[in-house]
Write a protein that binds this DNA or RNA. Structure first.
Length: 241
DNA sequence: CGGATTTGACCAGCGC
DNA sequence: GCGCTGGTCAAATCCG
């Protein structure tokens, strides 16, 4: 479990760096569509902050609009089979598809989902294949779940199991924003995997990644604190149940 | 038979 | 005002 956490942590960290770089570029380019929906919120979720996210939104209550409420936009990149035509991203939640649309910038249709696990849950999800790599699904999450993921509810009621949530976003219940795991970027940023071994599933590449993750983790003092907080939080939640 | 998915229609925002 | 586009609705259809 620790090992898995370490790997995830580092994957997130590298992705964070990538996203930060990307975003500074993207924000400059005039890609804003309607309103300013996307740009305000991306900043919030990209930061992998674990604690200090809640107060900022309330501060922005200047405009009495609902838009503020549906902040928290995050993105998850999920690699799938090309033959897999269903735009389904298994992230531990239960989704109901309510629409599909072919957009201008991408010939692949975009699917719209609402969280169907809790009727009052405002979270929406858009899933579309990446233009660059059609084997990659880009899931865009809007809003925050006001309930636990079904997989975790099962876990806490019975034998707790981490890893029931497949790759992609990690809906671990925390006060922070939804975490985005950009698998494609972490693959691409590893030049070994790009140049000589384009397949991540080769054991050498995997081993390299793991070693790289482990080494950078041990150098990062923040990880210790984050790990301790995560473990104690988990222990507390299982105790209280 | 009930819930989920599909898909065309409709609506609202934005640029010209 | 008009057309384009993304997002949503809802009737029809599918499926377990």
């Amino acid at each position: 479990m620790l090992k898995a956490m370490c790997e995830r942590y580092n994957a997130l960290q590298s992705q964070l760096v990538d996203l930060m770089n990307k975003n500074t570029e993207k924000e400059l380019s005039p890609t804003k569509k309607r309103k300013s929906e996307t740009s305000n919120n991306n900043n919030g979720n990209i930061i992998g902050n674990s604690e200090s996210s809640s107060t900022d939104e309330e501060e922005s209550c200047k405009k009495p609009r609902e838009e503020i409420i549906k902040a928290k936009i995050s993105r998850a990149y999920v690699r799938t089979e090309l033959s897999d035509t269903s735009l389904v991203v298994k992230d531990g939640y239960q989704w109901r598809k309510y629409g599909q649309k072919v957009t201008r910038d991408n010939p692949c249709p975009r699917a719209y989902f609402k969280c169907s696990f809790a009727p009052s849950c405002p979270v929406k999800k858009k899933v579309q294949r990446s233009v660059d790599d059609q084997s990659v699904l880009v899931a865009t999450y809007e809003g925050e779940h006001n309930h636990l993921p079904p997989s975790q509810i099962e876990a806490t009621s019975g034998s707790s199991r981490l890893g029931s949530v497949p790759v992609g976003s990690t809906p671990v219940k925390s006060s922070g924003p939804t975490i985005t795991l950009d698998l494609t970027n972490s693959i691409k940023s590893s030049d070994e995997a790009r140049n000589s071994k384009p397949k991540l599933d080769s054991p050498e590449a995997t081993q390299y990644l793991v070693e790289h993750m482990a080494s950078s983790l041990t150098k990062d003092p923040n990880f210790t604190a984050a790990l301790a907080a995560a473990i104690s939080g988990r222990m507390f939640s299982t105790n209280s149940n």
